[in-house]
Nucleic acid binder design. Structure first.
Length: 253
DNA sequence: ATGGTAGCGCTGCTA
């Protein structure tokens, strides 16, 4: 099973690029984040035309998560398992079962600046996703807005202590790994500078000033079946790219 | 380089 995650930064602006990418990467499951669409505007027909079932959880202007699958898409749940979501809750979590694997697509809050109320909310959200995964989860992937370690940052000195790399954020991510999830990309590759996100500003992509913040975490038995992983930097090039590249992992299941 | 660009949507917020 080929599973991918991609923060598309507006599916409305990116639909053509996503369709193109599905055509050549051919994932079995694609989790997307930041669709910035309401459920009513989600282009499910475009995906069904390509052979994908789809589910979407969106609020319209910001956030929004989706799962596409051509290997089954069952038991779709929007939001956390411990609370029914209403429209006041940011759309950052969607779960479904694909080919027997319980998958969650997540868009972890950005946190803005260390110590802000948004930062505290990010840490609380990460604690909550751990509880959610303990209830129901084989695999969680998406934009975590955390670079797991200094290999995953273009210049650790330049961002030291800032959001995405602060000790508390990394500790919150480590709690997921301590519970039993595995960073599948890191299981396969030790190299640094394999980034998945580059700021649009200041030519950061072309300078390769990025971070690896888009992660595919799987429980150990599943992670042991990961045989290949890739950040598709080609999808960050050319006309109208997202600021994130897709990350894909192949599982021998 | 406390700047810079992109998306949404129409004013400034979010990232």
């Amino acid at each position: 099973m080929r599973l991918a995650t991609w923060n598309v930064n507006s599916l409305k602006a990116r639909l053509g690029r996503v369709e193109e990418w599905l055509g050549y990467a051919v994932p079995d499951v694609l989790c997307m984040q930041e669709t910035k669409l309401s459920d009513a505007d989600f282009p499910s027909m475009a995906f069904s035309a390509l052979g994908y079932e789809s589910a979407h959880h969106g609020e319209g202007r910001w956030n929004g998560v989706a799962i596409l699958s051509r290997v089954g898409l069952d038991d779709v749940v929007a939001g956390f398992s411990d609370q029914v979501e209403d429209e006041s809750v940011e759309a950052r979590l969607l779960s479904a079962t694909c080919a027997g694997v319980r998958v969650s697509s997540v868009y972890v809050p950005n946190g803005r600046s260390v110590g802000s109320e948004f930062y505290e909310a990010k840490l609380a959200w990460l604690e909550r996703i751990l509880r959610h995964l303990k209830d129901t989860g084989d695999l969680v992937c998406g934009d975590f807005n955390i670079a797991p370690d200094d290999r995953d940052v273009w210049d650790p000195k330049a961002v030291h202590g800032a959001t995405h790399v602060s000790p508390a954020e990394r500790q919150a991510l480590a709690a997921l790994l301590d519970w039993g999830l595995v960073d599948t990309f890191r299981e396969l590759y030790d190299e640094g500078r394999l980034f998945s996100w580059w700021d649009y500003r200041a030519g950061d992509f072309h300078q390769h000033r990025g971070m690896r913040i888009d992660l595919v975490l799987a429980t150990r038995p599943l992670a042991e079946r990961a045989v290949f992983a890739l950040v598709d930097r080609f999808a960050r090039k050319g006309k109208l790219p997202s600021d994130h590249a897709p990350v894909l992992v192949d599982f021998e299941i």
